[in-house]
Write a protein that binds this DNA or RNA. Structure first.
Lengths: 160, 160
DNA sequence: TTGCATTTTGGTAAAAAATGGGTAATTATG
DNA sequence: CATAATTACCCATTTTTTACCAAAATGCAA
């Protein structure tokens, strides 16, 4: 029921772990043994997905080995998913450890504040600064789109 | 499930060996044979594939002898795989020895740091510097793609 | 063939890092 | 304002990593 939504602020401890809120833990509770998949997003944040969600994202190339042998582009694709995704688990106490390489990708330093954002199919973890920028960007995009909608309404359907 | 993924930093000892992480060793342990194939990639890194994956890469050629007789291009392909791939094995302690010629190809000096990268069908071993460049390139590509998506969203579907 | 020197391999101990748990402080709630 | 719940920080334990050393294997030359 309305899983994975809202925002939570929380802090990263010195070994790179965050404690999830009760609500968030409940959303992941169905996962066997707390297994989830962590993924680096190009926009500079980390995503946490339930395993089945990730598998659906990654559903398959028919013959990856043969393609990898001949195509550099395809090897990059494998690299992009392989290197930037890895299994992780949520501990019994609701903590999740973010590997160093992934923290660096997301611009998250140990001891700082992060924002945990629900994205309906899973979570995203943002550094506070980047999250503020992202929110701003999304908002501006929507406004711009609205402007264009208004303009189009004038042009296309003047008698409506 | 989700084998060969994530990134690990580790160092090469003075005789050119690296110690794989627990997770990586487990991924190889699931493979039918203990043998692996080492391969020099044109992008300047080394790949480590389970033997069965490598065989699948190479089984695409129906009649290599006949082709080799007539095609220079094909002979170059055979050369590329023959010379730049060789069997290797992972020791009982999870260590793998990289031959000097292969290390040089990948720009890896003894005693330095390398990054072990999962690529879903196997591993890749990169020098730290080259991996940073490769990651940057992959990321910038994805970002550029994202920007174009955003732009298209404004132009194409104003009523959406 | 034999002895020496060099490289390679496996093991071990010290260091570093990850993990789990507990407690104090802060925040939310009645 | 008091109580309860949550959070974050800290410390002890365990695991993993790394660097070093010894034994074995290999190659070379006398």
């Amino acid at each position: 029921m309305l899983a994975f939504c809202g925002q939570d602020k929380c802090s990263i401890d010195s070994s790179g772990r965050i404690k999830l809120s009760q609500r968030t833990m409940a959303d992941f509770a169905e996962q066997p043994e707390g297994h989830v998949v962590l993924r680096c997003l190009p926009e500079g944040a980390l995503a946490v997905y339930p395993e089945n969600i990730y598998l659906r994202m990654r559903q398959g190339e028919p013959d990856p080995a043969e393609k990898a042998a001949s195509s550099l582009l395809f090897r990059r694709t494998l690299r992009q998913f392989g290197a930037l995704s890895q299994p992780d688990e949520i501990s019994a106490q609701g903590r999740i450890t973010l590997p160093l390489a992934y923290r660096e990708h997301a611009g998250i330093k140990a001891g700082t504040e992060v924002v945990v954002v629900g994205v309906e199919i899973g979570l995203e973890i943002w550094s506070s600064e980047r999250w503020a920028e992202e929110l701003k960007r999304v908002n501006e995009h929507m406004l711009e789109k609205g402007e264009r909608e208004m303009a189009a309404d004038l042009v296309n359907r003047p008698n409506n």
